[in-house]
């Protein structure tokens, strides 16, 4: 288990880069990139540009998203920013403001 977990009480201001999965339950401001999956859990606050393999959002995200695989916005997610990914799902109950680019 080499993945990175930003717990609920933790705030990171700056740049996070990871070769593995990243799970955010706390607060991240700046830039977040991971080669694998990124999960923004319910209650998490991310104000950052996010680059990853796949992205699951259940919390609040402000920033532009680029995923090489897919982006899933779950019910309860609140996303403001542009999303660029091959596959995008937006669940009923997710709030989203921005553009979607699926490279068609």
């Amino acid at each position: 288990m080499a993945s990175t977990v930003i717990g609920t009480g933790i705030t990171i201001e700056g740049e996070i880069t990871s070769d593995d999965d990243v799970v955010v339950a706390g607060t991240v401001r700046g830039k977040l990139s991971a080669k694998e999956g990124i999960t923004i859990e319910q209650g998490a606050i991310v104000e950052a540009d996010v680059v990853g393999g796949s992205l699951i959002v259940g919390g609040s995200l402000t920033g532009n998203v680029t995923a090489s695989e897919r982006v899933d916005l779950q019910s309860g997610a609140r996303v403001v920013g542009n999303v660029k990914a091959g596959r995008v799902t937006i669940a009923d109950g997710a709030q989203f403001k921005g553009n979607v680019d699926m490279e068609v």
Partner: peptide, 8 residues
């Protein structure tokens, strides 16, 4: 994690 880098 071991593959991660944080600047900030």
């Amino acid at each position: 994690g071991s593959g991660a880098r944080v600047r900030g």
